[in-house]
Every structure is written in C-alpha cells, then in structure tokens.
Design a protein around this nucleic acid. Structure first.
Lengths: 362, 362
DNA sequence: TTGTATGCGTTATCAG
DNA sequence: CTGATAACGCATACAA
C-alpha cells in the first residue's frame, strides 16, 4: 500500500501539504499542488479510508440492513435509498440478515464499529435490539427504520399505509361476494404484518362477517411459508373462498399450493396479495394485490437520514406512504351478485400521515 | 465511544492485557481475565474495527459488487455467497453499481480502502477496470469474478455454461418447428451475453438455418430493454415466430410488448428465457427458460475466495456450473410437425469444466 | 503558505 | 504473564 508519506517524499513536500491538496482544505501554492497531484497520479495513490475514518471518526458510508434480499420488494427499496444516498456522495453498504436477529445484531455491531454516517434498517423478524440506536441514547448514529419497526421504536421511520391497504383490498374481496375469507399474515410482532391483519379484521368486522380463528394463519413473508399455510388452508372444510396473503411472495406460494391441489385460481379460490411486485402482472392469473411504493420508501428514508446526518434536530419523523389496490384477475366474483362493485371506500381514520392523496379505486 | 484504555483503567490492568483477553491470543491470568471481561460487559465495550483494521491491515469483510440488485437473479447469488461467507464468519458487504462502470470503480476503490479480506465481483456492463485486481498485480486483494467477467480477466472466476444452455434451448425451439428465430441479447461485451448469443448462433447454423441481422437485437439485461427490443422485433414483417431472450427479465419485457400489441404467447409468438427465476413458473404462460444455479454460483465463488484468503496459491480457477433447459408453456409447436420432439442433444464441446453431469432433456 | 508533531484505538514487540 | 511503547495512515492545530 502506498501512503501519504511516500507521496510527500517523492514530491519533496511535507506530508501535511499532501494532506492539504488531497482534501482541498487549506491553500497550497499552485506549483506544489501540481507536483503533488502528478505524483499521486503516477503512483496511483488511494487515501486509506481506514486511517481517515479513525482520525475523523466518521465515514461517508451509510449502512443498510435488510432482512431478505431474495424477496424482490427489498431490493426495490434499496434502489430508492441508494439513488439518493449516492447522489449525496454517500456509499451504501448492504447487509442481509436473513431475518435472523442474531445476524442482524452482528452486522449492526460490525457496521457501527466502522462509524457509518447513518443507518437504514429494515428490522428482522424478532429484532428488538435497536435500543442503543434510539435518538435519546447519547452519541447515537442517525438511524431510520424502514418499512416496519419494532413496536417500541421511537426514532424516525418511514412506513406505508399497511392497515388501509389491507382494509381496502379486503373490502373489495367482500364486495366481490366472498364471505369465507382467510388470511396468511407475516410475523405478527412486526408492525407491518400486524397492521395488515388489523386492516383485514376491520373490514371483516365492518361488514358484519366473522373469520374462524384457523382461517388466520401466521406465517413468514416468504414463498415457502405461503405454500405451507396455503396448503393447510386449502385442505380445510369448508374451504375459504378467498385468501388475503400479506405479501406477494406468500401469494406465489398459495398459487403453487392450489396448483398442487388442482384447485383453479380464481374459480375455486380467489387470491389477493400485497406489494405489487414486478412479476404480479405477469402471473397466471394476474395477481390482484396492493401496491406499495418500494422505491419511494427507500428514497424517503434516505432523505430523512441525510437530514439527520446534516444535523437536523427535532422530534422523530414518522412518514407513512400511501398504498393502492391493484385489481387484476386473481379474484373471482362469487354468489349471485351481478352488480358492478361499488368503489372501495377509505376507512375513516387513515393510519398516520399519508404524504400523497390516495385516489379512490374506481 | 468507549476504548480499550478505559477498560484497562477501570480494570486496573494495562491496555496490552485488555487486548490480550479480547483477542484471546496470549495467556492471561484467570483472575485478571475475569475482571477485564466484567468491565467490558459493564461498559458495553465494542472494539473499533477501524483501529483494528488499520493496525492489522485486514478486516473480516468480504466485499461484493453486483450490477443490478433489482434483477432477482443477483440476490440469489448473493444468498449463496453470504451463506458460505458468514459461516466462515466473514461479513458480506454489498454494493450495487447499477451497471455503471463509474459507480463500480468508485465502490471498488472505497471497498478496497477498507482492506476487505476478499472481493466478489459481478462486473458492470462495460467495466474493464479490474486490472489492479488481477492476480499478477503485486499486493492484490483476493478477487473472484462471478457470473461473467471482462474479456481480459485472468483471475479466478465462476461462471455457468451459458453457451451450452442457449444452444440447447435454441435447438428445442427449432425442434418445435420454428424457423424464424430472433434473439434479444445482453450487452455483448459481457462474456455471458456473448456466450449466449454464440450458443444461439451455433444451433441455428447447425440446423442450416439463417437469422436476419435485424433479428439479433442487443439490449440490456433488464425488463425495460426487453420491452423495447421486443416491440421492435414484433413489429417487423415478417415477424419472427420465436424469440430467445437472453434472460428472464428481458422475457418479461417481451411478454409485456406482445400483450400491448395484442399478440398471444405462445400462439402468435413463442418465447424462451434464461435464468429460471422464481417467477418463471408462474407467468402467463409459464416461461420456458434455461435454469442457471444462482445460489450455487455465489456459494462456489465464495468458497474459492475463502481458499484464496487462506493463502491457497496456484493457477486461476475457472469453474463452469451446468445449465438446464426448463420446458414450460411459452413455446408453441409450429408448422405441420406432430412428431414427438427428439431429445435435445448436447453440443460436442461442452464449454469449460461442468462440475455436474448434465442430464439430457427428456 | 508549509512543515512538524500529536493522537485517533488497536495490535505487536519487548523488556520486566 | 504483564506492562510500556512503537507503529498503522491520516488530519489537524500550531509553529515556523
């Protein structure tokens, strides 16, 4: 490795001068500056971020922790975060926790010991380990929770209108004549999974319907889990006529399960998801789901983080981005009803502060 | 931040002793050891990786560079890499280059200045910047190229049998009666894109067929590009009867284009992809494609990298993993032929060293 | 403007 | 076994 000292020697200047030209802080005589730059070029000198960080005790990296890189929803939010971070010349480094709180903890410690400028966290299922990141704790690294947060999280967060989204899609299911609804949830100690279930139950209740407890299956947010819970649900008698899957990966699993049981979707079983992933419009049948703005989620979170990094004080910001049902072909009308479905209404209390106006579903 | 010195003070020992208990290198009297550990616990001390790395000039991180996190194929290889890296207690940090060589360069420099133990690189379209990572260059960081490599790459690499895969799927297309084949390739300066085209052309040639030059469209490996090239192709007269898309994202784009043009797949246009992504069996129609083992790709690369990190010398290893056609419903039989398709034969020279035996397609 | 010296938090080398 | 001390590469306050 080639160091500043070597540059200094070759350019016949002091190491301090080299540092000054590298960082452009202090003024340096033009002739020296040129000479130093030339030597730097020649030797291909790269400043050691390690030493620099140790000295300045901060780096230009933003750490991001995601729970499951193989669920394409998360890469979408990563894209959003990265675009704004890299525009502000921060480097985004990613760690995948595999939904394992222990791994999360380990990555978090590792990341923090590199003194990142900030942290973007999508907590793993079961993590409550973010105590030392809360704003009140002394010299904390600026941190914002994305997509979901531990129940006791007090800091900045950007979420989506989960409850409203699932409420609206469930209403739609009911309007389509379904009376025997089931749902496969995510891990319920995650705020977003809980909110989606809440919206589901709210719609059910409002319509004077009931769901048998066994029609509410708690799963993971992945395809495997959707497959297993789907199988279980589809074998029950009487069978539900519609399943609300708490995300699109689960829905994919249900699709697989129904195929295996030789049940047709939507004729035998209607299905709705949540995410509106890229593949949702291409599945067979095209998946009716709730769109959530993954990219904006990441971008917004990164913007809030940058504000904090730049020293913005004030109360924790909790932004809630809107969700929007996407009606496609995986839900069939059931029963005699032939009337056009009424527009899906919004619940009286939209959860949180929706940034954009949510258009009513036509 | 709490330092070793503080621990030493509180435990009434020297800083050297603290270092010894933390690293478990030298022997420390049990009583002291316990005292130190207690203080560490109490104060929640975390060693500074920064200082440690500066001193040791190496870290336990493995940097990984991927070109497009929103293409689900790459997350799959990340999973593989991470599983083996983290089992060996390395931390995988990810950087997404967005297929931008400048960004790649920047991340690479950044990463390298943190002294990672090794680097896993899936080069961006257009990167030829890996010169200083080649094994011959002096104190290089162990590096292995994954999935594809710049044409002049001399180091370790793990790839898949691209040419063979596209050869076999193209043969299949021809067996299904197609005579007017088109292809949408990836960026052709990427080895894998070039190999897939080569396999395609080889099959064509072997069958005594020809493709019009405009039936070979060079695109990017993403859906947008597939959509655009697809549109172009589908508007040509005479129209190709089958399109071989160099990956599944491109195929998705073609699906969209055909839908927009009100062309039915596979009746009006047959389509084959490459990747066999998770969604491929759920698309409408289910996508016929070439399976490539993303997870193993990452896992194998990480294993080779770990060997190098542990000091293994020797010539560059170039592993080629097998690919396998997956026949589903996006390719229609065309023309009068009604005979059962003959088994797809393997080309005489399977490219590279396939690790597993490739079963003939039945 | 430029050079010198100190310290960031560790690890490693040596005396005790 | 334990403690002092010199690096690691850089930034910065201060002296020249």
């Amino acid at each position: 490795m080639i160091t500043m000292q070597e540059i200094a020697d070759r350019a016949h200047v002091s190491i301090g001068t080299v540092s000054n030209v590298v960082n452009g802080k202090a003024k340096v005589r033009e002739s020296l500056r040129a000479r130093v730059l030339a030597v730097i070029q020649e030797l291909g000198y790269q400043p050691s971020q390690l030493a620099r960080a140790l000295r300045r005790s901060t780096t230009n990296i933003v750490g991001m922790i995601i729970p499951d890189i193989s669920n394409p929803f998360f890469p979408a939010v990563v894209r959003g975060a990265e675009d704004v971070a890299s525009k502000a010349s921060y480097h985004l480094v990613l760690c995948n926790t595999d939904n394992d709180p222990a791994k999360e903890r380990s990555y978090l410690d590792e990341l923090r010991s590199y003194h990142p400028s900030g942290l973007l966290i999508i907590p793993a299922a079961g993590s409550k380990l973010t105590a030392e990141l809360q704003p009140e704790s002394g010299a904390h690294t600026p941190t914002v929770c994305v997509d979901r947060c531990p129940i006791d999280w007090k800091g900045d967060a950007v979420l989506v209108a989960n409850e409203e989204g699932s409420y609206r899609i469930t209403k739609y299911l009911i309007q389509m004549g379904h009376r025997h609804l089931a749902t496969i949830t995510g891990p319920l100690h995650l705020t977003n999974a809980a909110a989606r279930l809440k919206g589901f139950e709210k719609a059910i209740k409002e319509s004077g319907l009931k769901v048998a407890p066994e029609f509410i299956q708690e799963g993971q947010f992945d395809r495997m889990s959707g497959y297993q819970c789907g199988l279980r649900l589809l074998k029950m008698l009487p069978r539900p006529t519609a399943i609300f899957a708490a995300n699109d990966m689960i829905a994919l699993g249900v699709l697989l399960a129904s195929k295996e049981l030789e049940l047709r979707c939507p004729e035998d079983i209607s299905l709705a998801g949540f995410d509106n992933q890229e593949f949702a419009e291409f599945t067979n049948p095209a998946l009716t789901t709730v769109h959530q703005p993954g990219y904006q989620l990441g971008a917004t979170a990164a913007r809030i983080l940058l504000d904090r990094i730049r020293g913005k004080k004030g109360a924790a910001e909790q932004v809630v981005l809107p969700t929007e049902p996407k009606i496609r072909n995986s839900v069939a009308r059931v029963g005699g009803e032939r009337s056009k479905p009424a527009p899906v209404t919004r619940p009286r209390s939209a959860s949180g502060v929706a940034r954009k106006r949510i258009r009513a579903l036509s």
